[in-house]
Amino acid sequence: MSKRVLVVDDSVFMRDIIKDIFAAGGFSVVGEAGNGVEAVEKYKELKPDLVTMDLVMPYRNGIDATREILRGDARALVVMCSALGQETMVMEAIEAGAVDFIVKPPRAEDVLAVVKKVLGES
């Protein structure tokens, strides 16, 4: 069974790109969220195998959302989506419990490599 992914990003554009990458990589995107609040809710509802989480979002940023998700499920696998220049924030997210990160703009091979490693598939 393909792994179930929740894609969190405030940009529909970015979500579409990430979703397409996952679809091409044989993953199943079971949900998306446009902000941190929605992300936490969707996580509880869908219990995905993996979450890709944008850092900078309205309402609640990716770091807070990651913390909250991990508080509810310590084994949650959250991969941050960051851009160059956001190293400090990514490290904060890692401190908060994110398992890995991908760099925007996302390149399919990088995303899939990171995700497969995180899921122990490679």
Binding site: D10, S11, F13, V56, M57, P58, A83, P105
Partner: peptide, 16 residues
Amino acid sequence: DSLFRHSHSVKGMAGS
């Protein structure tokens, strides 16, 4: 922060 977020989003999209 909000201004930053907007410009950041545009950068990310343009990069993609």
